[in-house]
Design a protein around this nucleic acid. Sequence first.
DNA 1: TGACTCTACTTGTCTAGACAACTCTATGCA
DNA 2: TGCATAGAGTTGTCTAGACAAGTAGAGTCA
Lengths: 251, 251
Amino acid sequence: MTPPRAAATPRAASTSGTGPGAPYTRVKQHLKDGLAADQWPSGALMPSEAELVAQFGVSRMTVNRALRELQAEGLVERIQGVGTFAAQLHKVSSTLTIVDLHEEIVGRGHHHESRVHLQRSEPASIELAPQLEVAPGSAVFHTLIVHLENGVPLQCEDRYVNPAVAPRYLQADFTRITPTHELFRTTALWRAQYSIEAAQATRQEARLLGVAADTACLILVRRTFTREAPITIARLVHPGNRYSLHGEFQP
Amino acid sequence: MTPPRAAATPRAASTSGTGPGAPYTRVKQHLKDGLAADQWPSGALMPSEAELVAQFGVSRMTVNRALRELQAEGLVERIQGVGTFAAQLHKVSSTLTIVDLHEEIVGRGHHHESRVHLQRSEPASIELAPQLEVAPGSAVFHTLIVHLENGVPLQCEDRYVNPAVAPRYLQADFTRITPTHELFRTTALWRAQYSIEAAQATRQEARLLGVAADTACLILVRRTFTREAPITIARLVHPGNRYSLHGEFQP
DNA sequence: TGACTCTACTTGTCTAGACAACTCTATGCA
DNA sequence: TGCATAGAGTTGTCTAGACAAGTAGAGTCA
């Protein structure tokens, strides 16, 4: 016999039937939720395709697609002839690829909300000006936005934008679209430069994120460029206890 | 160039001289090759599913899978009701390049010193074994090294190595060369997987790094692979206040 | 001219069944 | 006891057809 399966909660009623979207997304989200809730600890055997077919009343191809995509996302590991297992880090996924946070959160089936704390034009400080290659004192755009996933602060985004590259930046409604999305839409990304560090957030950031002032945070500072000029410099602060970056590359 | 329109015998096609592996991988590779050869410039309309079905003599689901995976890889863009288009390559993956710490420190004109705290063979724990794809309890190599830059602890490197891939690993003198260098020299890196998080170091790590136990640290866990098997898993701990990762990518 | 509808084409998804490949366990035999 | 093998269970893949959803263009009508 194959290894014993964790006694699956007969939870058919809650998710089968009326989930949002296509059947395969329902199966996928059901498994994602279970993984997030630690229903299957790392390495545990998950339900087989046949069991999911019975539970959701869909065809095997549909279940197979859901599982295949979870595997591609690194959430599960599958072994032919053996079974499907919960992968190690079901914490949070993000690659260093520049990804739109909104799409990432929604992709997890969760709710994304942006709180815009600042959206205005400011004179460039003496430290900032060379970063954006503008004259000190000339106007630059500044936004300060906190992103929430299901109501929980996930990222504090402090961003300066070069007006020469994105002149209409300030007119966007950042409660509806993210700065990343707006800049992707209006500029031609050519190069990015990033630095990642672990440190304490500033007092203001800690307050905005709702964490203690001495919490270890993951701070990513990213500068992006068109072929000619800097587009933006962003300081992205994640509370370390609920976020981890991960990625993969293949030379 | 176009494969012969083999009649409905599905398996016949796969064994008759055409590319390796499953039909969907053949379709996928064919399109990848075409994209690499600039057969479809950025934004150009690519063959429809129906055309590929006719060309390869496979079912539409098979073609669909190939295209869906290319889309997931960012190589094509698909619009329902319109068609499939060659993508402009812009969000290519980031390179969190694996750098040899020694070269990095020396490159800064500083002095590099390694303190080897552990260098031995151990039985693989139940948690570690699947990470290296070895049997639990079988021997794995373990090194624990602290790297100092100009006498200041910069990184605590806790590393496990798969003996099947690097059988002579333990014979190296790690006061003279780094594990990264040794493994680069003796193995063929194919893929790497990493996760980055901000957290507190363990008590032992804090002691080895000479920092307070509650210091925010940048922790990078990296697993590397040859084409066949895991090479090593390393936990690299940097005191957050004196280190930051940085990188750059250019599509 | 301008607005509308109809049609052809495309992708998105699902189904029910089939066979292949693989792993693990239990059984039977020497 | 030790080994070979059969069988059950699992994932991997493919098929042929179906309907839904979306787009673009041609044609129609006021």
